[in-house]
Structures are given as C-alpha cells and as structure tokens.
Write a protein that binds this DNA or RNA. Structure first.
Lengths: 352, 352
DNA sequence: CTCAACTGATAATGCGCGTAATCAGATTGG
DNA sequence: CCAATCTGATTACGCGCATTATCAGTTGAG
C-alpha cells in the first residue's frame, strides 16, 4: 500500500518450488494438469504446491510459456486501416463479429495490430524487417487497401494467414474465406431478367480488386447464359459519383430499364439522377446494387446483394485454426460462401 | 511450393550468426539498432549480417524477445461480454475508438481477451489460476457486468490495469478514466431549474454501480444547492420499463413537470407513457436522460447527457502508458472528463 | 616505449518455463 | 530373495533472445 515499493518482481515457478520444497518440474506439472509430461505428482505434494502457489500469488509467465511450448493462443486480425472509426466500422463490423465469435470458440485471444505503422499513419506488416504479426499464432487479414508485395512476402514466409475475401497473389497460394460474388451477380441478373428487363446496364466502379473481378465474371456469365432473353447487358465505367449522375440520362435515353451499381452509394446516386429526370424508381427505372456497403447512410432502401460478412469472418478463423492444427499440410484452405439478397424498394418489373 | 515440406523451422539468431560468421550477440545488436547495449558493430560486419538476415528471411521471435527483454508492446482490453455483437457494439464502440487511437499512438498492439471464459460463456480474468491478461503489458477494463473479487485480486497482484469508468474496489486503489457524471447531473438539474421547472422527478434504475452512484450524488448536490428554487426533487426507483409506464401518470398527477431518466431507453418509455395520457413532450412534460445509451434505437430524440466515450478510452490508455513507463510509482492514476449534453427535443420550459 | 583509452567483437549468463531423461524407493511376482 | 515394475520426484537441457562482462587489437598521449 506504500506508494513506492520496489516494483515487486513476480514470483516464478522456482520460488514456488522452493517454498513447497519440490523441484520446479513438479510445479510445472501441477500447473499444467500434472498428466501431460513424463512427470507424475502425488496428491499430497500437489496440494502442498497449490498451497504455495496461492500463498505467493504465483502466476505463470506467458512469454516464457510460449517460448518453451510454442503457441500463444492468440489469433491476429490485420487491417491496413484503423478499425473503429465510424466510417470504417460499418464495413468491418460484420467481419469482426464473425471473427470474435469463432476465435472465442477456439478459446483464443484476439490481437488487433494497431502498432504496425512504419512512418506516418500507414500500417505495415513488416516493421523494420520484423514481421509484427508474429505476436499471434496466425492472422486473419481484412480490408481493401493493401500492400500486395508485403502480403506475398508474408505467405512465402509461411506465416499462417487467411484472407477475408478472395486474393490472388503472385507466386503464392493464399487461403481465404470469400463470398461468391460471381454467383450472386449472376443470380441478380437472372432475377432482373426474370422480371422482364431486356436492357441492363452495369455501373462499374473501375476497380480491379478480386471482389470486383468476380462480379465482372458473374455479369459476363449471366449475359452469355441469358443471351436470347436480353437485348443488352453492358458495362459502363463510372469512377466517381459525378460520372454516375452524368451517365444515367444517356442510359435512360438508350432504353436501359435497369441499372446495377457496384455498391449502394452508387446506386443511391443513380436513383437521385433518375428522379432528377422526373423518373420514378422503380416505376420507370429499376436500380440494384452488388454490395450493401456505403460510406454515407444512403437515402433509399436499395435492393442489393448482401455480403455474408459475419460468416466470412468466422469461416476465415476456422480455416486458420485448421492450418494451425495441421501445419504440415501447406495447401491453401478456401471457403466460398453464398451471398444474400436484400429486397429493397428499387427493383421491379419494367413498365409494359 | 511442395504441399508437404517438413514444417520448416524458422531461422534463429544463431542461424544468422553462423551464416554471417559472427556471434549471436552481434546479430542481436544489428537487429536492435546496434546502439543500445554494450555491443558495438562495425559497418562492414553489420552489412554482412543484414545480408544474412535477408538471405535466410530471419525474423526475431517475439516470445523470446518478451522473455528476455520484458515487454511485449501489447495493450489489452478486457470486457466481460463479447465486444462486437450489435447491441454491445453501440455501447463499446466509442470507448474502443478512443482506445485504438491512443494505443496506435503508443505504437502498441491491441489485444482483446476473447479466450478467457472458464466454463460456459462467462469470461474471466483468471483461468484456472492463471492471469490471462498477462499476454499484454497492461490492460484497460471496460463494461458493466463484473466480477469484483477477480478485479480486486488483479489489482492486488499489481497488474497494470486501468478502468474505463470509476471503480471503487475494497482494499485496492484502482486507476481509471471516468466521466464526471456527478457534475453532469448537477448541471442538467440546474439547467432544468433554470428553465423554470420546480418539481423534478428522477427515474432511477436501481443500480448501485459507481456510475449511478455518481449521478445520485450529483442529483443530491443539485437539490441542496437549488433548495430555494425547487419545490420537489425526488427519486423514484423504476427497475424496469413497466415500472416507468406505471409511475408516470402518478407523477404527472402530483405536478412534476420534468422527468430525468437514467438512460434513453427509460426516457423513451417515459415519453411514451406521457403521450399515452394525451400529454405532449416537451409541451406538457419535459423529459431528459442522464446517459445516451439505449439498447433499442429510441423513437425520440431525447435531450441527454452524453458520455465522452472516445476521450475516456484514450485517456485510459494514456494512464496505462504512464503506469508502464513509471512502474515504481504505485499510486493510482485518475482522469475525470466532462460530459456533453445533447439537446434533443424533449426538454423545454414548463407551461406557464 | 608504456599505459590508457577506444573499437569491434565474443563468451557467458539469465529470462521462466516445459519436458525428456533419469533416479530412488516401494511393490509385486515368481 | 531378486529382478521387474510402478510411483513419485529430480536433474538437465533447450526455447530464442538481450545483455553483461570480457577480450584482442588498434591508436594515441605522455
């Protein structure tokens, strides 16, 4: 209770051993359920040791344990951006939910790599040469912005890592828990076609991220498959909100009756542009989105593909667990999950 | 690239030393900026070592480092409940934002103790005798539900911990970053009195948590201070939503013109009850809350005291950093932050 | 020419723990 | 009565690194 005691060193196994008049090995055995190693302990001595442990307030040192044993029971989550700011949160939250859930089931702790920036605000996995992810037994990696070289290096190093979302890295096979964006896109187009639309336009954000490439593939597949029942299924690149606003009138003029946007922000923009023209959504023009994400809360309840974020997070952790349990199998682990569809009010049959 | 190589052991300092034809100590020095310890390294050898490091892909082992050095640059966050589920999130999010922010500034990582449940779902700090928080250099503790005995034990052990929110633990002086609920409550009552209200009722949730006790104190202080300008300032215990609904008509009948609830949920209930009676809020009855938290999204925009969550989180981490930097000073660190006030639409002057 | 001071490196040790190898004594069976 | 077995415990060692003490060689001052 004195304000300035010497920073009291924590008691060690040896201290306990001394007090209990046994060897350190016995203490170790008692602490670890005295059954595993080659050391056996009688009930009487075990009791004495436990007494000593209580008396000294002994608590094993985790670092030492890791060093000797091998694993830390910590699973990491790495992101290149901060996790909790409001805008990022809406994106990361579903994943985190799943991750926490699965990590908890594994009885592991969850480490967020917030201390990994090199210069300025940019986060990095390798910090002056050392792999900071190592604090954990393995890591789940989420996010859009990335340093692909670093990620490749990480995989080559053999560090147990699983991505949330598909990743293709040169010269390394990544493990991941992904969403079937391709299938979802195809499904959405089929549904739109089924409603009677014959001229569909896709408003493409211009990204070449795997998640977008998958959607591209799904769109292309649908177009091919529905060739006879579609008059047009075209892709227009709209890098920013303004481009959408400009493009919509032209598309309407050209007879497109349904617009598919990459995300809800863009879809919202499209709706706004349509209403600007005096058109009603979905009466005169249908709009749908391929992803529910949006930075700003969108004004409309857009019909959109929904990413199974929670499931992806949980799946990623489970894949990681498998890697950790079976490290000799170096093959990539992959899970692909179905997307959902949120029925908003922006998609309907075209006007007769 | 073969699918089943032997789980390739990671190269160690010794491996590097061998390859570079130097002693392990030199490698250590090079890795750690070769300036600190008593070991000096020439430029030529340093280059050779770095070359070897690259060639082997050497990466220092964190556990060993911790063991030898002392700290892990990990700061923990402990909560008794899961962090990311939707309902919990609205409560924890502001704190986490602040924590992440401050931890990032310290260049530390953030560990969430998800693997700390003993039996069933309940989380615990001590897991069969061992303090799981140890993985971190210190920990920030947040949340309502708690095991006070455990927390006391933690402090007695001398583990560096800082609470978010005031805590009084028997036989131990806790460090914390708290909000000035007392002052905020007094301020709110003053304001209400200033608007002309003379009969004020407080709907008390019945909790004896420090955060509530503080509000009690503030309320009592205001009552005393405003004795001459108040006809009544009474406290009514309403443990659940139903109790509020039942109580409100009686209070109205007794001439209370302003109700202060512990949180927004209860405030919302009170508004509903008033409207049920045909009264308008705030026309006929004013309502205010002492905390912005609510489990369900509340229907009304309630005037409420706002907890400085982000600031509390950041402050807690900074206090922890101070403890870690200055471990010989065992005195508790405390910060108390001012609350804000959200001007909703439920508070106005009483009818003339 | 000698002793001090400095540079660049090595050897040795300890951090706290897990565990394999080992050992002393008690029991048992033949 | 002795070898075989089992129980309960000890010793010794290694995990990978940081650090302290130490040492050989070089330089410089007096």
């Amino acid at each position: 209770m004195n304000g300035t005691e010497p920073p009291r060193k924590r008691p060690t196994q040896a201290d306990v051993a001394r007090l209990a008049k046994v060897s350190p090995a016995v203490v170790s055995a008692v602490v670890n359920g005295r059954s595993g190693g080659g050391v056996r302990v009688g009930d009487r001595t075990a009791a004495r040791v436990e007494q000593a442990i209580r008396q000294l307030g002994y608590v094993p040192n985790v670092a030492a344990r890791n060093l000797a044993g091998g694993r830390s029971d910590i699973i990491g989550v790495f992101t290149y951006e901060a996790l909790f700011p409001m805008d990022a949160m809406s994106f990361y939250h579903p994943f985190l939910m799943g991750v926490e859930e699965a990590v908890e089931e594994l009885d592991c702790h969850l480490l967020l790599f917030t201390g990994s920036h090199v210069d300025g605000r940019r986060r990095a996995i390798y910090k002056n040469g050392i792999n900071t992810l190592q604090h954990a037994d393995g890591a789940v990696i989420v996010g859009q912005a990335e340093n692909r070289e670093e990620l490749t290096a990480l995989l080559r190093e053999g560090f147990p890592a699983v991505f949330i979302g598909r990743r293709e890295l040169p010269g390394a096979e990544a493990s991941y828990a992904a969403a079937d964006y391709s299938g979802a896109t195809r499904g959405l187009v089929e549904r739109i076609s089924g409603l009677g639309h014959r001229r569909i336009a896709r408003l493409h954000g211009g990204s070449a991220h795997e998640s977008i490439v998958d959607r591209d593939a799904g769109f292309a597949a649908a177009r091919e498959q529905l060739a006879g029942r579609l008059d047009a299924a075209d892709v227009f690149v709209t890098p920013h909100s303004g481009a959408v606003t400009e493009l919509v009138p032209r598309l309407v003029e050209q007879g497109y009756t349904c617009l598919i946007a990459d995300d809800c922000d863009r879809a919202d923009d499209a709706c706004a542009a349509a209403e600007q023209l005096g058109l009603s959504v979905p009466g005169d023009l249908s709009v749908a989105a391929l992803s529910e994400f949006s930075l700003a809360p969108t004004a409309r309840d857009v019909t959109t593909v929904v990413t199974p974020g929670r499931e992806m997070g949980a799946a990623a952790v489970r894949l990681l667990a498998d890697i950790l349990k079976n490290p000799s199998d170096r093959s990539p682990r992959r899970t692909v999950l179905d997307c959902g569809l949120h029925d908003g009010g922006t998609l309907a049959a075209p006007r007769a």
